[in-house]
């Protein structure tokens, strides 16, 4: 028996918005410690890694490890039926071929349940090596989304360049060039407004706008985003999900000339 009840059901709706453009389907690996999802996009350019810890749920029970393959467009249709203040429960029997979503309104006057067929997905899991990143940049997530959106008008790629002075995002194309420089903030009233750069060595890498823009669908999950870069390895874009976990996107760089 698997059962996970999330009082802040809106978080699950936001998680769905954060992955559904990138992934058509994904396996939810449910275990005693919580729920994990790891999946590559269709083109195998990026990887999504979602972690929801059991402690973040109001009620969590997982008697046996369970892999639930879900069609994300179907799951998204179902989660759209939940109101933002609904409590969401996911449950499944051991070895079941369906999962049930239960939505409870805050005062319990409306309770809906939706049963969805599971699909068998033969998905490979990738080993993500432990990496000490040369540059770790924290910035407001809305600012990052804005930068990706603005620079996408200029070209298909964004160059991210991190030095001790700060971080520079650049794009170039037919209409011209664009550069956005963010300096590390000295003092801020709210921590979530800060730009922080932790740099061991300068790094410059080039990434496809298309994927960066899809990652920014996670913006409603967290006021801050963390970018980690090292020379010639994938970028990590991480959004914390309150006290429950995180979503990380890994994006392979564009390389060479």
């Amino acid at each position: 028996m698997f059962e996970a009840r999330l009082v802040q059901g809106a978080l699950l709706k936001k998680v769905m918005e954060a992955i559904k453009e990138l992934l058509n389907e994904a396996s939810f690996d449910c275990a005693h410690s919580g729920i994990l999802l790891q999946a590559m996009d269709n083109s195998h350019v990026s990887l999504v890694s979602l972690n929801l810890r059991r402690e973040g749920f109001d009620k969590y029970r997982c008697d046996r490890n369970l892999v639930m393959g879900m069609n994300l467009s179907s799951m998204s249709k179902i989660l759209k039926c939940a109101s933002n203040d609904d409590i969401i429960t996911m449950k499944a029997q051991d070895n079941a071929d369906t999962v049930t979503f239960v939505f409870e309104s805050p005062k319990q006057e409306k309770i809906s349940d939706y049963e969805m067929k599971l699909t068998n997905l033969d998905q490979d899991h990738l080993g993500i090596p432990e990496t000490e990143y040369s540059c770790v940049i924290k910035l407001p997530s809305a600012e990052f989304a804005r930068i990706c959106r603005d620079l996408s008008q200029f070209g298909e790629s964004i160059v991210i360049s991190c030095t001790k002075e700060g971080v520079k995002f650049s794009a170039a194309g037919d209409i011209g060039t664009a550069n956005i420089k963010l300096a590390q903030t000295a003092t801020v009233d709210k921590e979530e407004d800060a730009v922080m750069v932790d740099m061991q060595e300068p790094v410059t890498l080039t990434f496809a706008c298309k994927y960066l823009n899809m990652f920014t669908k996670a913006t409603p999950l967290s006021p801050q985003v963390c970018l980690s870069m090292s020379p010639d390895v994938p970028l990590v874009v991480e959004y914390k999900i309150e006290d429950i976990g995180h979503i990380r996107y890994y994006l392979a760089p564009r390389i060479g000339d």
């Binding site: 590559m40 195998h44 350019v45 990026s46 990887l47 490979d124 899991h125 990738l126 080993g127 993500i128 090596p129 790629s157 080039t206 496809a208 390895v233 994938p234 890994y250 994006l251 392979a252 760089p253 564009r254 390389i255 060479g256 000339d257």
Partner: peptide, 14 residues
């Protein structure tokens, strides 16, 4: 022109 790398050239299948 730069070329898009694949994520699987960095992370190997388990």
């Amino acid at each position: 022109k730069s070329k898009q790398a694949s994520i699987t050239s960095f992370f190997k299948k388990k």
